[in-house]
């Protein structure tokens, strides 16, 4: 509701001339800019697909690495307590600053982009899985002992389903953060992708295209987020509550 009002106000403001058209263009024009990218095969090939693939790959790695690290950490109390103070400050690290290092070491390319996305995406996954493991009820341990469910079977039958809400929340946050990492890296330096589209359009003062690309980024991240949230609501059993990290 509020969003609709804001968008309408922006449209009116731009049209009437309250807002400088050299800074912000009206929302309808933004949509047109987005359509000019989406509506062309070339736009898909050089703008959307490169970003989307990098985001997808980065998300997969984030989820896998985050989950495995959290499971490994939780196995030893000593290692866990040694890492705890650092895990809390992980979100404070300006990961983007590492992207230039990756470029210097690995060169410009998908690897550097994905690496940046993974480093950002792995943090929420790690914290979510750790919180999920902590919130597993103690009786799972008793059940595991009574029915002798051990090792991999215990992981797949008790541990992972027990923290399914945390896993899905982790996936949701992780995909959003991976996307931010990839787009930011593309904004800094990249020959392709949505971030690059924003950057190049801004440099050539093509505001329509710039806002179009921004809109696409927001739509992409927003739809991923909402999509996973819907899946989460659909697949989780009623009463299988979400834990808050």
């Amino acid at each position: 509701m509020l969003l609709v009002a804001a968008v309408a106000a922006l449209e009116v403001g731009c049209r009437v001339g309250l807002i400088d058209p050299q800074i912000v263009v009206p929302p309808t024009q933004m949509v047109r800019g987005a359509w000019e990218i989406v509506g062309r095969g070339e736009g898909w090939r050089t703008v959307i697909l490169p970003s989307a693939t990098a985001i997808l790959v980065a998300t997969c790695f984030s989820v896998l690495i985050g989950t495995c690290c959290a499971l490994a950490l939780s196995r030893s109390r000593m290692i866990r307590s040694a890492c705890e103070p650092y895990i809390v400050v992980l979100p404070a690290i300006p990961v983007f600053a590492l992207y230039p290092v990756f470029i210097a070491v690995l060169g410009q390319g998908v690897v550097s982009l994905v690496l940046t996305g993974v480093l950002l995406g792995v943090v929420p996954m790690l914290t979510q899985v750790l919180a999920g493991l902590d919130s597993l009820p103690a009786y799972l341990d008793k059940l595991a002992r009574v029915y002798e469910v051990r090792g991999l079977s215990r992981l797949t039958r008790l541990t992972l389903p027990g923290m399914a809400p945390a896993l899905l929340t982790g996936l949701r946050l992780s995909s959003a953060y991976s996307a931010i990492g990839v787009i930011a890296a593309e904004l800094i330096l990249s020959p392709r992708g949505l971030g690059h589209a924003i950057h190049s359009a801004y440099e050539s003062f093509d505001l329509t295209r710039m806002y179009g690309a921004i809109l696409l980024v927001l739509a992409l991240i927003g739809s991923m987020y909402v999509g996973i949230a819907m899946v989460q609501r659909r697949v989780l059993a009623p009463g299988h509550m979400e834990v808050r990290a």
């Binding site: 800074i23 959003a176 930011a184 904004l187 924003i198 801004y202 505001l207 921004i214 980024v217």
Partner: peptide
């Protein structure tokens, strides 16, 4: 409003600041 803005990736708005 706060929650919405907090959840959006703020980095894409940087060009607006430069403009």
């Amino acid at each position: 409003v706060l929650h919405l803005v907090n959840a959006t990736p703020k980095i894409v708005f940087f060009p607006v600041f430069i403009l």
